[in-house]
Design a protein around this nucleic acid. Structure first.
Lengths: 213, 213
DNA sequence: TCAAAAGTGTTAATAGTACACCCATGA
DNA sequence: TCATGGGTGTACTATTAACACTTTTGA
């Protein structure tokens, strides 16, 4: 037996900040909250931790419910534990972000939940503390992308250097010099040219790259 | 009313990694776990979140119970949510670290709880996932001290540059060149000389500094 | 022929690293 | 007088930032 009986228990939710990259901008998947309190307000994708699953597994389950995706790059952001953060009942939320390829998920699932992509720089007011969560997650990916090739999770298999640069610019919220960017990327040795040429986005055509291994 | 009734609730604990700096080494305050499961095992300082307090407030309360200290520099580390992490019952733990001055807390309180300082590089095996927690927290302060003057929380009011350097070395786990260290610190402009001389730690005497404002 | 995106090097500034000797003092 | 920790500067290397023009091609 344990000595825990005298302590209170709490609902524990998981909120997922699902990032995607489309039309040159970093996007977040949001939907309308389907239940009270705050029904109809804009909300991150979330759910409650189940008794038999770890919090990490809960985040993976919720992501799969909304996207059909498994084995996605996810990281914990933080726990949010203010007493009144949910105006209905006390809920402690543990937040994760996920990076997905917007061309490669089950959009029927997200449609069922009325989810939509919104530009991270033009987020509407979300319910509760969800805007804070997005801001923090965005800072985290900004730090991470400086040292790890997490862009591979957001881009199509083949991509041009210009697209890759626009991803970095969108995540970091800065503009980057093209020559400096290309040099720093080539030094990092994450990507390799495929020999294929993309003719869609320019007349001249641009070399298509892919992430290594 | 809320729609949450069908979801399970969980015990939520807070574990505090209380860092101090003594005898040239970064230390952590640990004690023997006072209840089952794992009674008598070495453990971080922890407790359960109460119904009417935020998780942050819970961390502050626990810190105060063990040290008497208020208004301490604390940061959330992460939430730990594996199903079996506590072998007794399901407990989700939210971890914080705190930085305190070892000369300036109520050691009677820590004595009551049989707490003791151990070198972070010589930690015994702690219960559950507590060693993982310490490792992660230590990485965090290593990152933070590179850009923020958090040393002010760990050092006495007046300190020599040698002591400050030994703090950085202990946190980062590296040795630092004395001249390079002094240059980088003076560029950062965190500290100022007091004009006082410390005669304790050297024959010649060393200038005592303090953190600005 | 021109608009639009692709591609390509050099220089300057900054930050970080390596390295060795003299000083002041109390025991 | 000597052992101990205090204090100081310079050269090299690596990283980052600034900056502009030519190429290709489809419309």
């Amino acid at each position: 037996m344990t000595a825990y009986k005298s302590y209170p228990k709490f609902y524990v939710s998981v909120d997922c900040i699902i990032f995607g990259f489309a039309k040159g901008h970093l996007k977040v998947l949001i939907h309308q909250r389907p239940y009270e309190p705050g029904m109809g307000e804009q909300s991150l994708i979330g759910g409650f931790v189940q008794a038999d699953e770890s919090v990490d597994a809960s985040a993976r389950r919720i992501l799969k419910e909304f996207t059909g995706l498994d084995r996605v790059y996810m990281q914990q952001v933080a726990a949010y534990g203010e007493v009144e953060r949910d105006p209905g009942e006390r809920v402690i939320s543990i937040v994760y972000y996920a990076l997905i390829n917007v061309d490669n998920y089950d959009s029927q699932l997200s449609d069922i939940h009325n989810a939509r992509w919104v530009d991270v720089d033009q987020l509407p007011t979300l319910c509760f503390d969800h805007n804070d969560m997005v801001q923090k997650a965005r800072q985290m990916i900004g730090e991470t992308i400086k040292s790890e090739p997490i862009g591979s999770n957001l881009l199509p298999k083949y991509f041009t250097l210009s697209l890759l640069q626009s991803l970095y610019e969108s995540i970091l919220g800065t503009s980057i010099d093209k020559r400096n960017f290309r040099r720093s990327i080539s030094e990092k040795d994450y990507i390799k040219p495929t020999g294929m040429i993309d003719k869609e986005s320019s007349r001249r055509g641009a070399t298509l790259y892919q992430f290594k291994n």
